[in-house]
Amino acid sequence: MNLAFESMNRKGFNVISGETAWTQHKAKSASAEKRAEEVNNMMVNENIQLIIPPWGGELLIEVLEYIDFENIQNKWVLGYSDISLLLLAITLKTGVATAHGTNLVDLRGEYSDDTTEMWQSVLSTKIRESILQYSSEKYQKEWQFDNPTPHIFNLTEQTCWKSIGNDNVKMQGRLLGGCIDTIRHLVGTPYGEVQKFKENYIKGDSVIWFLENCELSTTDLRRSLVQMKLSGWFDDCSGVMFGRSSANTPVADYTVEDVYKELSEELQIPILYDVDCGHVPPQITFINGAYAEVELDNGRGTVLQTFK
């Protein structure tokens, strides 16, 4: 954490740290009330324009009922993993854009790789402006915590985005998504009302979902996607992007490619996978609520986001 603070200070940021970034007991940093109070205070603090949690939180869902959604401000919250549950809840309930991308701890290096580094440019994009990002050149196959590089990650494997049918793909729509392990638990709650979000904030626009799997087997992933489908989350959907994953464990020869193929056939939409999103870095910074034009051309991807 101290290294991350030093890195942010070098970039010109004035870092303010909450207490719960330094505490941990029984799978959580503090009580749900205390964690939510810290977020609520940061949200209304005029000296804070960007909130970046150090990493995810296994029991983040506990804080939702204590978050003051009435006072959510137009300031960035950036992160991934369990943090994506809070990000999606904020955007769905309030229409305020949130940023799915790097966590603070992964900014502790001397510099960032080209893909990760785009987070600051994306978050500096103004209303009605656009920002273009490209798929990475290489990705990290496994964490080597005892062998960090100057940009933290060990990027050794050639990146190749794929699609069901091996076709080149173009899709357009509003971005929504996150870590499916966690955001699936918003289904059926007041914090996961996708249809209401569409009616209130993106009338007439379709949705592109970006999803990544941290720990689920293929059958659990399939169950989660079917639940999302039955709840209407995939209504008016123009496509789905799945991030690379070290999970997706096959069950009785049922592979993740089978899961993607079934979803594509059921929804009659394109499916991209192995994109730069989630727990196998690096990752593109996706903005919940942004209008995106996504293209796949012979294994290379581009994401053009417009803030409107």
Rank of each mutant, 00 (worst) to 15 (best):
P270D: 07
A32I: 01
E38M: 05
L50Y: 14
H279T: 10
K261F: 09
I287Q: 04
M43Q: 11
D146E: 14
R174Q: 13
L186H: 03
L60I: 13
S130N: 12
I127F: 15
K75S: 00
K162S: 11
E137S: 13
M171C: 04
T306C: 08
N45T: 00
T20E: 02
E129M: 12
A99C: 14
Y273I: 04
E257D: 14
V259Q: 09
I152E: 08
S238T: 09
Y139Q: 01
V207S: 10
Y134R: 11
H25Y: 15
M43D: 05
E262A: 14
I180P: 08
K138H: 10
T115S: 03
L78V: 13
G95E: 03
Q172N: 15
N213Y: 07
L296T: 05
V251K: 04
H100V: 10
Y273G: 01
D114R: 12
K93T: 05
K93R: 10
G243T: 03
S163P: 09
N9S: 15
T285L: 13
G299P: 01
D181M: 07
F210E: 05
F13T: 09
L59F: 08
I67C: 00
E295K: 15
D205L: 12
G177D: 05
P190I: 06
K28A: 11
D274S: 07
K34W: 05
P150T: 07
P282T: 03
S112H: 09
Q140P: 03
I131D: 06
E6G: 10
G192H: 00
K26E: 15
E262H: 10
F5N: 14
Q24P: 03
P150D: 14
L3R: 13
K261R: 15
S224C: 13
P53I: 06
I164Q: 11
T98W: 10
W209E: 06
I180E: 09
F153Y: 15
N248C: 14
V63E: 01
I269N: 03
E46Y: 01
Y291N: 13
D114P: 08
N200R: 15
G289Q: 09
Q283F: 01
E38D: 08
L88V: 00
W55F: 10
R223M: 10
F307H: 12
F145Q: 11
L60V: 04
Y66F: 13
T218K: 04
